[in-house]
Nucleic acid binder design. Structure first.
Lengths: 191, 191
DNA sequence: GTCTATAGGTGGATAGAC
DNA sequence: GTCTATCCACCTATAGAC
């Protein structure tokens, strides 16, 4: 007790570095050696904390989803207006992109065919949670009359998630984050 | 002349196999060994036709873009109605997805950070061409009054490309191509 | 144009000392 | 919990015979 704030524990720092690597290079585009070099430890040390890359990857998604859910709760706390909530949802993506990253699960969706099965399940769960959150926001907006759209909210939620992920991917290729903003604004303005 | 149809020449068959591998596993998710095994030749033989993976990758995109452009011309020949042309544009993606693949350049956009520079330029060019084609269709539809949208057609074209790519990515993760169809229909119906 | 053989490097992962 | 040392599989790529 009353100790100076401990530096983040090693496992967390490993996850931090691995997360950024997956978000920029994909799951097949980085190695334990990359993490080891950044943290200046040996590969063997990493295997102590995460016995296999599959385990590391799974924990990466679990932590990412937890953080993401916290951001969604923060949105709910910050505004109750559905359209504003959608804008803030899109801003999560925009902030990640401006930090030079892609959505972790967007990257993993691209790598999907090569992922260990446990990671596949976690990736889908992440998107399921996103869809569910968006459905709730969309339904509230429709009932309140502040959002206008036809058909199942779930279909629209899926369009939104896919469109934001895709817009992010293209914006990065062009090195132009404003491409994402323009796309996100259009998508939300159409509701 | 009058010979039996020759089997596709070796370079083309290599490109065929490599194309499918990139479309399913990504550029970092396959190796010369994978191609060699499928075609039952040696890796050394592949290097005779494509000295490096970077060269193979670049030619892959060039051929893909050529094929894609031919499909766009076929759309123009098949219908002059802008909304119908958009539906057929989306159907190109849907057909690729039902063949168990992703868009080649969608996959490469995910791998973007790890690509050799020549491949990066080709990927962007592919998307540029897609945007330009869509802009022309959208502008015609707007002038004819059959499509309704506000703002620059280029912005909308970019939304469409990104959204279709993203929808494709998610649909594959869930192993459900109909997710793509639903998204594409919504996107086009909103115009 | 395809082969065998191999170079030279990196991948994930483990054993065992400290 | 981190290290050294190592394993073995795989990677891209090349030399040179056929």
């Amino acid at each position: 007790m009353a100790r100076p704030a401990p530096s983040a524990d090693t496992a967390q720092r490993i996850l931090d570095v691995a997360e950024r690597l997956v978000q920029t290079r994909g799951f097949n585009g980085f190695s334990y050696a990359d993490i080891a070099e950044t943290l200046r430890v040996t590969k063997a040390s990493l295997h102590y904390h995460f016995p296999s890359k599959a385990v590391l990857g799974k924990q990466l998604i679990e932590r990412y989803e937890t953080t993401f859910l916290a951001a969604l709760r923060a949105i709910e706390a910050g505004s109750t207006e559905p359209r504003e909530q959608l804008k803030r949802y899109a801003k999560i993506y925009a902030d990640v992109l401006r930090d030079g990253r892609m959505c972790l699960c967007g990257m993993l969706a691209s790598d999907y065919a090569t992922l260990p099965k446990p990671m596949k399940e976690e990736v889908k769960h992440f998107f399921d949670v996103n869809e569910q959150w968006l459905v709730a926001v969309l339904e509230r907006g429709r009932k309140a009359g502040s959002l206008g759209f036809k058909g199942p909210a779930l279909d629209l939620a899926r369009v939104l998630v896919g469109s934001l992920e895709g817009a992010m991917m293209l914006a990065r290729s062009y090195g132009d984050a404003s491409r994402f903003d323009t796309a996100a604004e259009r998508l939300i303005a159409s509701l």
